[in-house]
Design a protein around this nucleic acid. Sequence first.
DNA 1: TAGCCTACATACCATTAGTATACTATTGTT
DNA 2: AACAATAGTATACTAATGGTATGTAGGCTA
Lengths: 121, 121
Amino acid sequence: MGKINQAPPATCPVDYAFQRIGGKYKGRILWFLGDGVKRYGQIRRSISGITPKMLTQVLRELEDDRLITRTVYYEVPPRVEYTLTETGRALIPSIQMISTWGQAQMQHQGITAMPLEEGEE
Amino acid sequence: MGKINQAPPATCPVDYAFQRIGGKYKGRILWFLGDGVKRYGQIRRSISGITPKMLTQVLRELEDDRLITRTVYYEVPPRVEYTLTETGRALIPSIQMISTWGQAQMQHQGITAMPLEEGEE
DNA sequence: TAGCCTACATACCATTAGTATACTATTGTT
DNA sequence: AACAATAGTATACTAATGGTATGTAGGCTA
């Protein structure tokens, strides 16, 4: 349930890729993780508008697709860290390019770009 | 109706971009158009499994977002040609990289990649 | 000890994306 | 007259995606 595009396994590389990084939040999450190891709460604060349920769901899908790893520290309060796998990291240059494109388009339309949020801690 | 992601206008470039090129078919269609001017039927034959309704819908969305242009020739039988705009063409290198990534992953998993179809004419 | 925090899980519901199938218009060909 | 070709429309439907609300565990804080 909740899997973006799980239908017929892709034979086209573009299709294959978009089945994994399409969806409303995946690009932004991967992009944010490109910055380094992040905790659940950090991601949630950086991805404006995402609900905890969606975040959990999306993170699990990315984990299932081996784009990120999830490390649980059994402390109290619990701590869960997410980081890109090699495969996931290999996507960052592509997302970088897409971001650059997006930035240019936004400028073109007079929209002010705000890459990612989150107040320091 | 049918607009993929029309919710709050993106402030993040990555979000902005994925709102335009996300969805099941957009990446593949743009990629195919990267090859040059294409007719409706050519696109339909190249994107396996797409229904005419979806294709029309997606093409209209790409047109609205100024990623492609649509040229109608009032002949019989009708002829409609689609081509990338400058903005759309600027996306091709990113899709190229994503495709390369996808290809590598597919190889890694023993899947045979089949970039795009369509028999010559 | 009553709530608060983190990091979720679960149930339920609404919206949106996508599918299936059939149909249209126009003109030339058989 | 029936059929082919192209580029779609129309209608009805299912599946995927996303959202709200609430629950849970264990320690921490007031």
